[in-house]
């Protein structure tokens, strides 16, 4: 059975740990160009995000118009000895450029795609 359409990939930080910047860029575009939405546990460095922006535009065509990125801030309670304390972390969502990413004031993030393209997919 072939499953077509958008996919969501959660990428744990360890997956990118031993990759060079160039390899990370390739890893991400290999998936985003296939209409995958990536949720990265590691939000990447600002310069790598800027490089992703540039590389997304280098790949610009009628069918690929770049990428969209959005942070998700997460606050988790720490257990054990430090019970009661909280730890802030950030996830990075990367989606194809035709997606619309909304970030509400409450912190939730939603990724939407144009209807016509969803049907085609």
């Amino acid at each position: 059975m072939t499953i077509q359409g958008y996919a969501i990939d959660f990428i744990p930080s360890g997956r990118l740990e031993n990759l060079s910047d160039e390899q990370i860029v390739e890893f991400i575009f290999e998936r985003v160009e296939k209409e995958h939405v990536l949720i990265l546990e590691n939000p990447l460095t600002p310069s790598l995000r800027l490089e992703l922006t540039a590389q997304g535009l280098v790949r610009f065509s009628k069918t690929f118009i770049g990428i969209k990125m959005q942070f998700i801030n997460i606050r988790t309670e720490v257990g054990g000895l430090f019970r009661g304390k909280t730890k802030d972390s950030t996830l990075l969502v990367i989606a194809p450029g035709n997606a619309q990413i909304d970030h509400s004031e409450h912190g939730d993030v939603s990724v939407k795609f144009p209807v016509a393209q969803s049907i085609e997919a």
């Binding site: 460095t45 600002p46 310069s47 995000r49 800027l50 922006t53 969209k68 990125m69 959005q70 942070f71 970030h103």
Partner: peptide, 16 residues
Amino acid sequence: PFDQVSLTLMGTLEMN
């Protein structure tokens, strides 16, 4: 000001 462009630009300028 929480858009990705502004945050990424500011982060890159700070790093450099």
